[in-house]
Simulated scan of single mutants.
Amino acid sequence: MLIAQISDFHVVPYGTLAYGRVDTRNMLARAVVALNRLQPQPDLVVLSGDLTQSGDPAEYDVLMAILAKLRAPVAPAAGNHDDRDAFRAAFPSVVATSAPSPFIQYVLGFESLRVIVLDTVTAGSDAPEFCDARAGWFAETLAASATPALVVTHHPLFMTGIPWMDPESLAWTDPIRRVVEAYPGRVTGFVCGHIHRAIHTQAFGVPASSCPSTAHLVALDFGAASPRLSMEAPGFQLHAWNGLGLTTYTASLERFGSDFSPGDPRL
């Protein structure tokens, strides 16, 4: 099974640029073209939050027009830049299976893997949270099947080392940790967005990774106490599940598809 992941689109209305300089619409459109060229095609494309810049319904209209060209089915997650009501209106099939309200959490079942999307958003804040109601649903979902699960969150469940992006502590992840520890071996990996960079580490002893943005990246500055963004090449990730383990690949969208043969392999 092959799962693609794209993240943090920050789509803005037509005629505008994010932060006055980033053409997030066109950059997402380029990502869709790149994913459509993949062979084999992904079985699923995870959209790991911050799909829009401000959660405005007009931004979701632009978003859905771009995503309509994507060949593979999607699994969207809400981010701190999204609005839950507008998100639900844009993705009605998610609303039909999501629980508990008002949170956007759901599970997609495949033959040998389940994809569980969790809601780590705090309304009106960039800070992450995960309450007892969300944790209760997560526990019930893990308990319902022994099929391995790939868990999607927007916020990382680990410290990134970039001060202005990290919460004061990881105490907010304790409800998730307790559920994972109650069902050992059922979560095969965590994937997230938010950080706009590829990071590979662990959370609660489980492999965890973050996906680069399709647009601007967060600057790799371990001393930055205030926001610093970067126009490095955007990217995406591919998660390959073979029934036993998960392998994650990170690829750049810059010049994607410009492969060539070097001829003499010794050159």
Rank of each mutant, 00 (worst) to 15 (best):
Ala182Ile: 07
Arg25Asn: 11
Trp172His: 14
Ser7Tyr: 07
Leu229Val: 06
Ala203Pro: 11
Phe190Gly: 01
Asp85Ile: 03
His196Asn: 04
Ala72Arg: 02
Pro227Leu: 07
Asp23Val: 02
Pro227Val: 05
His10Cys: 13
Ser209Lys: 02
Pro73Arg: 05
Gly79Lys: 08
Cys211Ile: 06
Tyr19Trp: 15
Gln202Lys: 01
Val95Tyr: 06
Val95Trp: 04
Asp8Cys: 12
Val121Ile: 14
Ala77Pro: 01
Pro148Ala: 03
Ser101Trp: 11
Ala123Phe: 12
Gly20Arg: 05
Ala233Gln: 14
Ala233Arg: 11
Arg255Leu: 13
Ser261Lys: 05
Leu108Tyr: 01
Val180Asp: 00
Asp126Ile: 10
Ala203Gly: 10
Ala143Phe: 02
Glu129Val: 03
Met27Ala: 09
Met159Lys: 11
Arg88Val: 03
Thr250Asp: 12
Phe190Ala: 00
Glu168Pro: 03
Gly235Tyr: 08
Ala171Phe: 05
Ile195Gly: 12
Gln202Thr: 15
Leu170Asp: 04
Asn242Gln: 08
Phe103Lys: 09
Gly189Leu: 03
Gly223Gln: 09
Gly20Pro: 05
Gln53Pro: 01
Arg30Val: 00
Met27Cys: 05
His239Thr: 03
Thr97His: 14
Val115Asn: 06
His154Met: 01
Ser169Ile: 06
Asp85Phe: 09
Pro265Asp: 03
Ala198Ile: 00
Ala72Lys: 00
Ala139Ile: 08
Arg84Thr: 12
Leu2Tyr: 13
Gly136Ala: 11
Val32Ile: 13
Phe260Tyr: 15
Val62Gln: 13
Thr201Pro: 09
Ala96Leu: 05
Arg88Phe: 13
Ala144Leu: 07
Asn80Trp: 06
Gln39Leu: 11
Leu108Phe: 01
Val191Ser: 04
Ser258Glu: 13
Pro76Cys: 00
Thr248Met: 13
Glu129Leu: 07
Phe204Tyr: 10
Pro156Gln: 01
Ser98Phe: 04
Pro148Lys: 07
Phe158His: 12
Pro102Lys: 13
Phe130Asn: 01
Glu181Tyr: 07
Ile6Glu: 00
Asp221Val: 02
Met27Arg: 12
Ala78Trp: 04
Arg71Asn: 10
Val206Asn: 02
Gln237Arg: 14
Val45Ala: 10
Arg266His: 09
Ala171Leu: 13
Ala68Tyr: 03
Leu47Ile: 04
Gln53Ala: 14
Arg25His: 08
Ile199Pro: 10
Val191Ala: 05
Leu70Asn: 08
Cys192Asn: 15
Ile199Cys: 12
Pro175Ile: 10
His194Pro: 03
Arg71Ser: 13
Trp172Ile: 09
Pro13Ala: 02
Leu118Gln: 10
Asp174Gly: 02
Arg37Leu: 14
Ala18Gly: 02
Arg186Gly: 01
Phe91His: 07
Ala77Asn: 11
Pro92Phe: 12
Val107Glu: 10
Phe130Glu: 03
Leu220Gln: 09
Ala251Ile: 05
Leu238Ile: 01
Gly55Gln: 06
Ala18Leu: 13
Trp241Glu: 09
Asp23Gln: 11
Arg37His: 15
Pro234Met: 06
Pro42Phe: 06
Glu140Leu: 07
Gly189Asn: 04
Thr250Phe: 08
Val206Gln: 03
His81Leu: 04
Val74Gly: 10
Arg71Lys: 12
Val152Ile: 14
Leu170Ile: 10
Ser230Trp: 02
Gly185His: 08
Phe222Ser: 15
Leu246Met: 15
